[in-house]
Nucleic acid binder design. Structure first.
Length: 648
RNA sequence: GCUGCUGUAGCUCAGUGGUAGAGCACUCCCUUGGUAAGGGAGAGGUCGACAGUUCAAUCCUGUCCAGCAGCACCA
C-alpha cells in the first residue's frame, strides 16, 4: 500500500497509508483528539471522519470548538434527523432536500395536510428521541441503479429526480442513521448523539416551490435554527427579539411617520413626521446632485402605451404596470395609458428634443421620479417593497469611452452620501452577462471591464454575480442589509445601449455624423421609501439629528415655565431647528418617557430653576443623565447639530 | 401570484352561536410634579367585506379584500 504525507497546521508532516481516514489520523495523534474530533479539513475541503484520504494533503482536525465546521455538521445532521422524525410520524410524507442555511437549516416535504405549530412540537420531541438514541451514522457509496431501484420501491419521486440530476461519474452517497437513510453527499457527524439536543428549535413552516421553480409543485418547508449549545441558541433568540424592535413597520407607527391602509395596498400615507424625513432627504439629495453635475427634470405620470411599446416595456413589463384606460370624447376606441413604472423612456424624450452634440456628453439627467409598479401582492413589505415610490433616478447619456469614468464618479458620489447617512457597511455586486442577452461579446467585455475597473479605482471591492445582468448590459448593485439580515438593493448603476437604440436617441459626433449614446441608469438611494425603511432599521429609529423629524422637544416641568418654554422653542425655530413645546399638564417623567419612545433626539426640560437662570436641562435620547446649559449657548449648538452634514 | 397563518377600540390583545371586554392612548376634572407611565371620571367598536347555514352569526361555511412568514418575482 502506498504512503501519503499529511501536513498539519503547525507545519508537522506525518506519513500514513493511503486511504487513511481522518478518524485514524486523529487517533494517531492523541486519544483525546480522537474523541473530540468531528470532521477534518483536507486541502480546504470539509471531510467526514470516515472518508478515505488518498493523496498528500494539508489536514486539520475539527472539533466542536471550530465554529464553522461544527455548525455545518450539526445543522446538516439535524436536517436529516428532522426528515427521519417526520417520516416516523407520518410515513407517507415524501422527502426532498434539506440544506443548511444561516443560523440553521430547512427541509422541504411533500404532504397533503399542512404542518401545524403543534406538529412542529411533536417533530421536535421525536428529534430529541433520535438524538438520544445515539444511532451511528454511516455513509455508503451506491451504484446508481441500486439507488434508483431503492427510491422507486419506496415511492420517493423527488429523490428519483435528484438522482437524475447527479452527474454521471459522481459518487452517489447514502447516509444512514438507524434504519433511516437519505441521499446525501455529507460530511456528517459520527452518531446522532453528537448533535446538541438542547440547542435547536423548529421555527416555522412555509411553502416553497420544488427546485425553486414556480411551475413545479409547492412543498412545505420546515425551518429550524441550531447552535452548539443552549447559550448560543438563546443569544440568537435574543438577537431576533432585538431585530424585531428595529422593524421599520413598528417604529414607523411609534414615531408616527406614516401609515398604510387596505384601500391603497403598497402605497404610503406619509404623516408630517415621515414627510419631514422624506423631504429632508430629498433636499439633501438635490444639493448633492447639483454639485455632482446633474440637471434635474420632471416627466409625466401617465403615458400612452405607444411610448411603452417603443421602449419595450409593453411586451416585457406589462404585468407590472398599472394600466389606465381613458374614454376620450370623440375617440373611437379607448385610449390606453400606463402609469410610468420607470423614468428612463421619458428622459430619452427630453434628450431627443433638439440636436445634441458630443460636447453635451456626458449629460446627467436626474429626476425624483414617482413610479408605480404593480408588484405581486406577496412581495409587498412595509415601505421597503411598495407599488408607489419615488426613485432618486438619473440617466447619464454618454459615450462608451466615458462609462468607466462615470461609474467611478458615481461610486464616489454614492460612498459620500451613504457615509453622511450613517452607512459604512455595504457591498457592491457586479452582475455580468446573462444567457439571454443582446449585443456583441466585445461590447459586454468592454462594459463589464469598465464597471470592474471603476469599482477598483474608487477603492472598493465587488462580488461577481454571473449571469445576473440585464439582457442589455451589466450592472453594479449597492446592497444594504436590514435589521434581520435581509439584503436590500438600494443603489444601482446599469449600462444600457439598448434603450437609446429603441427610442432612437442620437448625438452629433466630432465627425459631424450621428452616433448612438450609451445610457447609464443609476440611482443612489434607490427609492426614498425603501431607503427610509432601511435608515430607520439601521439606526433603530434614532435617526441622525439632521434627519430626525422632531429634533428637540422643550418640556415644562411646571406650568409656570410655559412662557419660557415657548420662548426657547421660538429661539430654536428661528435658528432653524425643528423644535416643539410640550406644555401639557403632565409630569416630567411622563413627557420624558413619551418623547423617548417617539425617538426625539433631544429633550430640554425647564422648571423654576431654568427660568430663573435662563438655562435648560438637556437630555439626549438613550442617555440617563442630563446637563444644565445656558440658553444662549444651547441654541447655536443645537442649530449646528441639526444642520445637514453637507451644509456645515 | 403560490402555500400556510391572521383580521375584535388609535395601539397591544382577551372573548362568546343570544348583537362585546382589558391595559395603554384620547377627552374632562383634580394634581404644579425635577428626567422613562400621579389620581379620578368619561367617551370610543356594523368584531375586514359580501353571501350562506341558523329562530338567532363577531363566532360555523364559502367567496373576496388586506396583513404576516416564506417561496416565486424584483430590465
Amino acid at each position: 500500500m502506498s504512503q501519503i504525507s499529511l501536513t498539519f497546521p503547525d507545519g508537522n508532516i506525518r506519513h500514513y497509508d493511503a486511504g487513511v481516514t481522518a478518524a485514524e489520523v486523529a487517533a494517531s495523534i492523541a486519544p483525546s483528539l480522537a474523541k473530540a474530533a468531528i470532521s477534518a479539513q483536507v486541502d480546504g475541503a470539509h471531510y467526514d471522519l470516515a472518508w478515505p484520504i488518498n493523496a498528500d494533503a494539508a489536514i486539520s482536525i475539527n472539533t466542536m470548538k471550530d465554529a464553522a465546521p461544527a455548525l455545518e455538521l450539526i445543522r446538516h445532521d439535524l436536517a436529516h434527523i428532522m426528515a427521519r422524525a417526520v417520516q416516523e410520524i407520518w410515513p407517507d410524507v415524501k422527502v426532498t432536500i434539506g440544506p443548511v442555511r444561516d443560523y440553521g437549516w430547512f427541509y422541504d416535504f411533500d404532504r397533503e395536510e399542512p404542518f401545524t405549530p403543534e406538529d412542529l412540537g411533536q417533530i421536535e420531541a421525536k428529534m430529541k428521541q433520535i438524538i438520544a438514541a445515539r444511532d451511528a451514522v454511516k455513509t455508503e457509496v451506491w451504484d446508481r441503479n441500486r439507488a434508483v431501484e431503492y427510491y422507486r420501491g419506496k415511492g420517493e419521486p423527488f429523490k428519483l429526480e435528484l438522482l437524475d440530476r447527479i452527474p454521471e461519474g459522481q459518487d452517489i452517497r447514502m447516509y444512514w442513521h438507524g434504519d433511516w437513510q437519505d441521499l446525501c453527499r455529507g460530511p456528517h457527524l459520527q452518531h446522532t448523539g453528537q448533535v446538541p439536543a438542547d440547542a435547536f428549535k423548529l421555527t416555522h413552516v412555509a411553502g416553497a416551490y420544488w427546485l425553486g421553480d414556480s411551475s413545479r409543485p409547492m412543498l412545505q418547508r420546515i425551518y429550524g435554527v441550531a447552535f452548539r449549545n443552549r447559550d448560543e441558541l438563546k443569544a440568537h433568540m435574543t438577537m431576533l427579539e432585538e431585530a424585531a424592535k428595529r422593524d421599520h413597520r413598528k417604529l414607523g407607527r411609534e414615531m408616527d411617520l406614516y401609515h398604510m391602509q387596505e384601500e391603497a395596498p403598497g402605497q404610503i400615507f406619509w404623516h408630517p413626521n415621515g414627510w419631514t424625513v422624506y423631504t429632508t432627504l430629498q433636499d439633501y439629495m438635490r444639493r448633492q446632485q447639483r454639485r455632482g453635475g446633474y440637471v434635474e427634470v420632471n416627466t409625466p405620470q401617465v403615458v400612452n402605451r405607444v411610448l411603452w411599446e417603443k421602449s419595450g416595456h409593453w411586451s416585457n413589463y406589462q404585468e407590472n404596470m398599472f394600466i389606465v384606460e381613458v374614454d376620450e370624447e370623440h375617440a373611437r376606441e379607448k385610449t390606453i395609458n400606463a402609469l410610468k413604472p420607470m423614468n428612463c423612456p421619458c428622459h430619452v424624450q427630453i434628450f431627443n428634443v433638439g440636436l445634441k452634440s458630443y460636447r453635451d456628453l456626458p449629460l446627467r439627467m436626474a429626476e425624483f421620479g414617482s413610479c408605480a409598479r404593480y408588484e405581486p401582492s406577496g412581495a409587498l413589505h412595509g415601505i421597503m417593497r411598495v407599488r408607489g415610490f419615488t426613485q432618486d433616478d438619473a440617466h447619464i447619456f454618454c459615450t462608451e469611452a466615458q462609462i468607466e469614468a462615470e461609474a467611478k464618479k458615481f461610486i464616489e458620489f454614492l460612498s459620500n452620501i451613504y457615509a453622511d447617512l450613517g452607512f459604512h457597511n455595504w457591498r457592491i455586486k457586479l452582475s455580468t452577462r446573462p444567457e439571454k442577452r443582446i449585443g456583441t461579446e466585445e461590447s459586454w467585455d468592454f462594459a463589464e471591464g469598465a464597471l470592474a475597473n471603476a469599482v477598483t479605482a474608487a477603492g472598493h471591492s465587488y462580488e461577481i454575480f454571473p449571469g445576473e445582468g440585464a439582457f442589455y448590459g451589466p450592472k453594479l448593485e449597492f446592497v444594504l442589509t436590514d435589521a434581520i439580515g435581509r439584503d436590500w438593493q438600494c443603489g444601482t448603476f446599469q449600462v444600457d445601449p439598448n434603450l437609446p437604440e429603441r427610442l432612437d436617441a442620437s448625438y452629433i459626433g466630432q465627425d459631424g455624423a450621428k452616433h448612438r449614446p450609451i445610457m447609464l441608469h443609476r440611482a443612489t438611494l434607490g427609492s426614498f421609501e425603501r431607503f427610509i425603511g432601511i435608515l430607520i432599521e439601521e439606526h433603530a429609529g434614532k435617526l441622525p439629528m439632521w434627519i430626525a423629524p422632531r429634533q428637540v422637544v422643550v418640556a415644562s416641568i411646571t406650568s409656570e415655565a410655559d412662557d419660557y418654554v415657548n420662548e426657547v422653542v421660538a429661539q430654536l425655530v428661528a435658528a432653524g431647528v425643528r423644535a416643539e413645546a410640550d406644555t401639557r399638564n403632565e409630569k416630567i417623567n411622563y413627557k420624558v418617557r413619551e418623547h423617548s419612545l417617539g425617538k426625539v433626539p433631544v429633550i430640554l426640560a425647564v422648571g423654576h430653576r431654568e427660568v430663573e437662570e435662563r438655562t435648560v436641562s438637556l437630555r439626549r435620547l438613550g442617555e440617563k443623565n442630563s446637563e444644565v446649559l445656558a440658553l444662549a449657548d444651547v441654541v447655536p449648538a443645537l442649530a449646528r447639530e441639526a444642520t445637514p452634514p453637507d451644509l456645515l
